[in-house]
Design a protein around this nucleic acid. Structure first.
Lengths: 181, 181
DNA sequence: TCGCGCATGTAAACAGTTACATGATTAC
DNA sequence: GTAATCATGTAACTGTTTACATGCGCGA
């Protein structure tokens, strides 16, 4: 009954051992561009994963009242992760606040609405530019089987997503200006 | 302190009065393609909205032990909705289980992975075809200010999203087959 | 009269965010 | 010495899902 968060942790641990702190740092900015978690969530989940035997840790002397715990995948953890990867994702409901606002946008002042979409456009253009720089840093896609394939494939997804978002914001701005006022 | 769910309800109510049941039916399949809610959530939220004076209702005789309540926006509710529409959305963390799986896909059996993406591709192609039919049923975009503009603009977002998703799945399948079984 | 759709609600469980709480190590 | 970073954890709250609970109205 491991949660998706649990598998997110296993997925990071599959690339090398980490402390809870390292995991939290890795997941503050999205892992694979599309998953985040806070440190309090991670420490609690690590305890569950350990109870299920999917991870283990070496206690080390280190900072803080509890010292330092370096977590690693167990054989069971790796097997569970492998099995999970190819299972169909359970469809989560889509929820997007900007699109919901758009649904109600016929009520809004056009000027404020243009401002909203101009800001969103700028944000997505910036993210896109960042992703494009990252893409350039890879020299083409690594082969599947290479851990870096995971990074590249999720980056490609992020690129496509940001492009779609940029196009949509531009289309909205066109609609909103062509209709005057 | 109205939640996004609250505004989702107000956004639907802005198009006409509804019972809680109607709202739940409307939100089972995503409103504006990107928001869903269950009926238990909706009834609870309606009580809060009512306490805040953003909605009112007429009790009617009808089925069930409690009869039937037809909800409508109040003037305060409409004003709150109008103000909310153009405020910047608070950035929710991206979470996408399929992309997370992709991040860990270097561990997977290539055959099972191809199957996963083939299934996802089929699903997104089907959704895309449905959206394209809906788009054709509109004869071009309604003007902003028309409630149907909200429907059309969110549909356009859905179309772009599904196209991006289809492209990404196809790209993944190419990568996975070119690298041999 | 039997079953489905309409219609309302509560309760418990799970997921995620934010705030609280502690304290060692390291670099300036 | 003092501040930032490393490091762990708990508690309270909010949001979402799933299960429980009731019962009228209508059509076959």
């Amino acid at each position: 009954m491991t949660s998706t968060l649990g598998f997110a942790i296993l997925a990071v641990l599959a690339r090398g051992e980490r402390t809870g702190y390292d995991l939290a740092a890795a997941m503050r900015t999205p892992v694979g561009y599309f998953w985040t978690a806070g440190h309090s969530q991670i420490h609690a989940e690590l305890q569950k994963l350990r109870a299920d035997g999917l991870v283990g840790f070496e206690a080390e002397h280190g900072p803080g009242p509890q010292g330092k715990k370096v977590y690693h995948l167990t054989a069971d953890g790796l097997a569970a992760l492998r099995a999970w990867v190819t299972e169909p994702p359970r469809a989560r409901p889509e929820r997007d606040e900007l699109v919901l606002k758009t649904y109600a946008s016929w009520l809004a002042e056009p000027g404020l609405l243009r401002r909203l979409f101009a800001d969103q456009l700028a944000m997505h253009e910036e993210r896109l530019a960042g992703y494009e720089r990252e893409e350039a840093a890879f020299g083409g896609p690594p082969p599947p089987g290479d851990p870096r394939f995971g990074n590249y494939a999720t980056l490609w997804c992020g690129l496509g997503y940001e492009r779609h978002r940029v196009e949509w914001c531009r289309w909205m701005l066109e609609r909103l200006s062509s209709a005057g006022a």
